[in-house]
């Protein structure tokens, strides 16, 4: 189970997060924490002609939350905002290719929650 949860891709994204950093100015920015473990994620987005032209994130947390957010930024980069809005938790979990237990689901989905809240301008509890 550990080998599958902490497979090389996850560890790679944790050690070398893609799109790490911040955008100033940004068209959308949002930050949130996972109160259970104190994980923090902030995502900045730039949108041009209805597409995500740039995305950056800053985060502090466990391997699952950081890797999932890193992978999420790769999923949204260059895509139309409508498609980004339509990303579901199952889409992200499929991309992670790891078995996420109920206890770690909030870690895996923190980045997506922040992204959606940023785009919609309100906190969404994407349970």
């Amino acid at each position: 189970m550990v080998d599958s949860l902490y497979r090389e891709t996850i560890l790679d994204h944790y050690r070398n997060p893609r799109n790490k950093g911040s955008l100033d100015p940004a068209d959308y920015t949002y930050a949130d924490t996972n109160p259970l473990c104190g994980d923090e994620v902030r995502i900045d987005l730039r949108v041009e002609n209805g597409r995500v032209s740039d995305v950056k994130f800053e985060g502090r947390g466990c391997a699952v939350s950081i890797a999932a957010t890193s992978i999420l930024t790769e999923m949204v980069e260059g895509r139309p905002l409508d498609e980004v809005k339509a990303i579901t938790k199952d889409d992200l979990l499929e991309e992670l290719e790891i078995p996420v237990s109920p206890a770690r689901m909030k870690c895996a989905l923190l980045g997506l929650k922040v992204l959606k809240a940023g785009i919609y301008g309100v906190a969404q509890d994407d349970e």
Binding site: V2, Y6, C62
Partner: peptide, 25 residues
């Protein structure tokens, strides 16, 4: 290593420990 990751790996080895702020933020 984040404590949640430590605890998840320990769990896979059958060792149950707690990770987090232990209600003492």
């Amino acid at each position: 290593i984040h404590p949640h990751d430590v605890a998840a790996i320990l769990d896979a080895e059958g060792v149950a420990v707690r990770a987090g702020h232990h209600c003492t933020q």
